[in-house]
Amino acid sequence: MEYTSIVLIKQVPDTKNITGDVMKEDGTVNRASLPAIFNPDDLNALEMSLSIREIFGGTVKVITMGPPWSSEILRESLYRGADDVIQLSDKRFAGADTLATAYTLSKAIKKSGKFDFIFCGRQAIDGDTAQVGPQVAAKLDIPQVTFVEKIEQIDNYSITVRRSIEGGYEIIETNLPVLLTIMGTANEPRYPSCKLMMKYKKAKSIAEIERENNLSDEKIKNLSKELERKKLLIKTWKVEDIDIDSSDCGSNGSPTRVAKAENVQLISSEIKKVEPNIKDIRGLITELVSDHILG
């Protein structure tokens, strides 16, 4: 049988590769200068959905919530083989914590139709919370399995997966529809296909068109129609499109607030320089032994 998969993805600042270029003089990171990337674990989630489609057939739908330019990762999803992509972009979605994000995503999923699987990356590298996946599953009242390393078997409406736990793993069986969060070690994400890049490089979302050009509403409408005709329009959904109250999304719908954010500074200490020669290293080891650091 064929399966419909939904993949939830996020565009994130690349917090993993902090180079000297983005460090400020006081040793803190200049967040604004970090490049925006496809959240790494979400690529593994996308790969999982594509490999299921290859075996069983079906469709892969990708959804992201973010600023207008987050459609970049939706184009990347199309290059890798997604069938359909949806962008949730509205100022009223901004400032959402994980609960408001999960609620908004669950509303969009309900609107997008029937599904068998929802795939998420294990966690996003900006917040590292790993909360949105389980929170979406709860809102949709479907089971979840987090930290999935491998799908062992899919049998009509049941699935068996391998879940990573501390120092080992579990084999879990549950029913579809299900939400799975995928580990970065689960697979090797495929590269974008040249053919699909040629096909979709001009794909754009309405939010992007609105932002890029200072165009009249009329012009925007015509441009979108033109893109739609060529099947190159990335759908943008706003508050009104997903049957959500604006008091339940964005910062209004978020119980948690950041009260304070302090940049981490490098702790400088009295460093002793040790030259890489036998004499200096002997001195170091002697000192550590006499300080009872080494036995």
Binding site: T98, L99, P134, A138, T146, F147, P255, T256
Partner: peptide, 23 residues
């Protein structure tokens, strides 16, 4: 913030609903 806690807490927070901070 174990594989159990990080699976259970967000699910519970979502249905209560309540605020949850990770890790």
């Amino acid at each position: 913030a174990t594989t159990t806690g990080r699976d259970l807490a967000p699910r519970l927070a979502s249905i209560l609903p309540a605020g949850l901070t990770a890790d």
